[in-house]
Amino acid sequence: MEYLNAFLTELLILVFITITFLQSGIDKIVDWKGNTGWLKEHFSGTFLAGQVPLMVGIILVLEVIAGLLAIAGIVEILTTGEVTLALYAAVLSAITLLMLLFGQRVAKDYAGAFTITGYFVVVILGVYIMS
C-alpha cells in the first residue's frame, strides 16, 4: 500500500473506469434483448440501423476489457507502482467512448453525445497523467 498516496488520482480514475464500463458491459449481457431493441429504434433511419447487434457486441467486449484492465491496473499500481495496465485501460476507455460518441452523433442524439463528454474528460485526464 506504499503506492496508494502517490497514485491516488490514477486509482480513483481507474475505479471510475471499472464502475462505468463493467456495469455497462454487465447490463448489456443481462439485458441484451432490451439494449439491442432500444438501439435498433435509436439508429433506425441511419446507415447503422442494420448493424446494431454487431455494434453492441463490439462495445460490450471493449467495455468489459477496459473494466478488467482497470482492475488489473489498480492491482499493478498498488503492488509495483507501475501504470502500464492502467494506461491501457484509460486508452481503451477513451477509444470506446469515441465510438459511442460517433454513434450518438450519427443518431442525432446530441444530448446523449454531450453526456459522453463528461466521461471522456475523466478518461482523457487519466491518459494524460498516466502517459
Rank of each mutant, 00 (worst) to 15 (best):
V83E: 11
V83P: 02
L48T: 01
A70E: 12
I26Y: 14
Q104M: 13
G126F: 02
N35F: 01
L101N: 00
L11K: 07
I58A: 14
L8S: 14
L14M: 11
S131P: 01
E2F: 06
M1P: 06
M55E: 07
I77H: 00
G103Q: 07
L12S: 08
V61P: 02
G126M: 06
T9G: 10
T9I: 12
L48I: 05
Q23V: 08
E63S: 00
A90N: 12
F120K: 02
I59M: 08
Q104S: 11
F21C: 00
A90T: 12
Y88V: 02
L100E: 00
A113D: 15
I13Q: 03
G103I: 02
L48Q: 05
G81C: 01
E2N: 11
S24R: 05
Y119W: 08
A90Y: 06
W38R: 04
G118M: 08
I19L: 12
N5L: 15
F7R: 03
L11H: 09
V15R: 01
M1N: 09
L101M: 10
L14I: 01
T36E: 08
A90W: 04
L125G: 04
I65W: 07
A111M: 11
F47V: 05
V123R: 00
V30A: 11
L11F: 00
F114T: 13
T117Q: 09
P53K: 12
I65E: 04
G67R: 03
S131C: 06
E76H: 08
V61W: 05
P53S: 11
L60P: 01
W38E: 05
L14P: 01
I129S: 07
I58P: 02
L92G: 13
A6L: 10
A72E: 11
I74P: 01
F114D: 03
T80F: 12
Y110M: 08
M130V: 00
V52M: 14
S44I: 01
A89H: 09
V61C: 08
T20D: 09
